[in-house]
Simulated scan of single mutants.
Amino acid sequence: MSDWNDTQRSGQAFGSVPRAGGDVASRATYDEGLRSYMLSIYNYMASGVLLTGIVAILFSMGGMESPAAWLAINGGLLFWAVKLAPLAFILAMSFGLHKMSQTTLQIVFWSFATVMGMSLSTIFLVYTGESIAVTFFATAGAFAGLSLWAYTTKKDISGWGSFLIMGVIGLIIASVVNIFLQSEAMAFVISGIGVLVFAGLTAWDTQRLKNDYQHLRGSPFMGKAVIMGATSLYLDFVNMFMFLLQFLGSRE
């Protein structure tokens, strides 16, 4: 993290007069590297979201005659394979991170974004295109605001992590239970909590990634860290979008 008060690294506190031009040059180099690192993450993340959206739209074209509709109605095991495939990609990226080359990890990331598009294509059969677009831009605005706040704030939010992870686990359990209960009220509560949890994760992940740069700069692992960081923010965005769609989406 860019810590202006780290006297061990900079040799001076924030607001004091630099003793030498080298301190200023070092600070500028560090900040430039941090910006480049974060922009690389955001570029990967945004490209992944764009690819997912394009695949989802193409897969749903044709309405009830589309590949998405065929999968939903006749897919059977294939339908569930497509739905669960993104989880398999995430597990492969997490557990195979140190064994994969950076190029392989990139291929897995783009494959993951593509399969996610196939998995999410069914929302076009349930919600109107206009409401999906409105929800997408609302999510993009919220994501940008939360991420910018987390990047610029001096407040340490690292303590949110354990609470938010427990929230994700709770959401998964509640969602599985509601598959059997089919309760609209419970689904509404789950969606509300889901929006809050992934909004929090967006901010937490942003600050975590910013903090990580201090330890990663100059490391050969930097390229992989960018891809994994983009994957984290991608998941925050997509999940916040899906939960928000429960509130803003208009059904066909």
Results as ranks from 00 to 15, higher is better:
F137P: 06
G161C: 02
G145K: 12
V168F: 01
F163T: 08
S158V: 05
G141L: 03
G145L: 15
S147G: 06
D156E: 06
M166P: 00
F136L: 15
L146M: 14
Y151S: 11
Y151K: 09
T135S: 14
T152M: 12
F143P: 11
K155V: 13
G161P: 01
L148A: 15
L148M: 13
A144I: 10
G159A: 03
G159S: 04
L164N: 10
K154Y: 09
K154D: 14
T153I: 02
K155Y: 11
L164M: 09
K155C: 02
I157G: 03
A138S: 13
T153K: 04
G161F: 01
S162Q: 07
A144L: 14
T153M: 03
F143T: 14
A144D: 00
G159R: 00
G159W: 00
F143N: 10
A138Y: 15
G141I: 03
K154G: 10
F163M: 10
F143E: 08
W160Y: 12
F137L: 09
G145H: 11
T139D: 05
A140S: 12
A140P: 10
W160C: 05
L146A: 14
G145A: 15
A142T: 15
T153L: 02
D156H: 00
K154C: 03
M166V: 09
F137G: 01
F136S: 15
A138F: 12
M166W: 08
T135I: 04
F136N: 14
Y151M: 09
T153P: 05
K155E: 04
F143R: 15
K154R: 14
F163A: 11
K155Q: 11
S158N: 04
T139R: 07
A144N: 03
G161T: 06
T135L: 04
G161S: 07
I165W: 10
G141R: 04
G159Q: 00
W149K: 08
A144H: 06
V168N: 04
G159I: 00
I165T: 13
S158E: 06
K154A: 14
A138R: 15
A138M: 14
D156T: 00
I165H: 08
F143H: 13
A142Y: 12
T152E: 12
A138I: 14
I165A: 08
F163D: 03
S147Q: 12
A142C: 13
A144F: 14
S147P: 04
S158Q: 08
F136K: 13
S158T: 10
I157H: 02
A142V: 15
W149V: 07
G167I: 07
L148S: 12
D156Q: 02
W160Q: 10
F136Q: 12
S158F: 01
G141Y: 01
L148N: 09
L148H: 11
T139M: 09
F136P: 15
K155D: 02
T153A: 03
G167E: 05
T139E: 05
S158Y: 00
L148T: 14
L146N: 07
D156K: 00
S162M: 09
F136A: 15
S162Y: 08
S162W: 08
W160I: 06
W160R: 09
A138W: 12
G159C: 00
F143Y: 15
G159D: 01
S147K: 05
A144S: 11
T139Y: 03
I157W: 00
F163P: 03
T152P: 03
F163W: 10
G159H: 01
Y151F: 10
F163Q: 06
A140V: 11
